[in-house]
Simulated scan of single mutants.
Amino acid sequence: MATTAPGRNVSVIWFSLLLALILMIIPLPETLRFARPEWLGMFLIYWAMALPQRVSIGVAWFVGILMDALSGTTLGVHAFAYALVVFLVARFHLQLRQYPLWQQALTILSLVLIVQLILLLASSMTHQWKVWMPAVTSTVVWPLVYALLRKTRRAFQVS
């Protein structure tokens, strides 16, 4: 079996981020809209934790600008929130990788809450309690996202 050179299959990262963008803009019923997990944030966190040399603040900023454009929010809000979260993950990625999955999930709660609070401050959202819903659902979904992206990274030998 031929081995792939380092840095190959980076397109898998971009494809997964595109998938996360699609998951973020799929219309949901009104009752589920505020419980949507922060797919894009979780995917960025995973890749920044696993391959910080490939997914950096610049990638987070670019994808955040795309998210702002697709969701119709103020330009730069998602970009700032994602860039801040990826900065924190990149700063502590060695420690985060060592955490058990349940501790990583609690870290996801904190990081997604940061994203949601930034979005809340930039908008005129009147139901502040709904800021917790994406953070909680992202925490619950994190072990599945982690397992799926880890398996994908290994299967496609993304480095």
Rank of each mutant, 00 (worst) to 15 (best):
V12I: 13
L21S: 00
I22F: 10
L17M: 04
Y46D: 06
L40Y: 06
F43V: 13
I45P: 09
S11P: 09
R8Y: 05
P29D: 06
T31R: 13
S56I: 11
I45W: 02
S11Y: 13
Y46G: 11
P27F: 03
F43R: 04
A48H: 00
F43G: 05
A20H: 10
W14D: 10
G7C: 02
R54D: 01
G41A: 09
V63Y: 03
G7P: 00
E38G: 14
M49Y: 07
A60H: 07
I57D: 06
I57S: 07
R54T: 07
M49I: 13
L40T: 12
P37R: 08
W14E: 10
G41I: 03
L28Y: 08
L21W: 00
V55K: 02
L44C: 05
G41S: 00
E38Q: 15
A50N: 05
M42Q: 08
G7Y: 01
L28D: 09
E30W: 08
I57N: 05
Q53K: 09
P37C: 14
F43Q: 03
T31L: 12
F43P: 01
Y46E: 10
R36D: 07
G41T: 10
L18D: 12
V59G: 02
L51D: 10
G58F: 05
V12W: 03
A50E: 07
P52F: 03
L17P: 00
A20G: 05
L21P: 02
L44H: 06
M24E: 09
S11D: 13
L23N: 09
W14S: 14
P37G: 13
L21I: 05
L44W: 03
N9T: 12
I45G: 09
V55C: 08
Y46N: 05
A35K: 13
I57K: 09
L28E: 05
A60E: 08
L44Y: 08
A48G: 09
L17S: 03
Q53P: 03
S16I: 09
G41V: 02
E38D: 15
G7T: 01
A50T: 12
N9A: 11
I65R: 04
R8I: 11
I25A: 12
P29M: 08
P29N: 11
A35D: 14
L44Q: 04
G64L: 07
R8L: 03
L18F: 15
A60N: 06
V55A: 00
P52T: 03
G64C: 02
V59T: 08
Q53I: 04
F34T: 15
L17D: 04
R33D: 12
W47V: 10
P52L: 03
I57E: 07
M49S: 08
A48K: 02
F43L: 11
I22E: 05
A50F: 07
S16D: 06
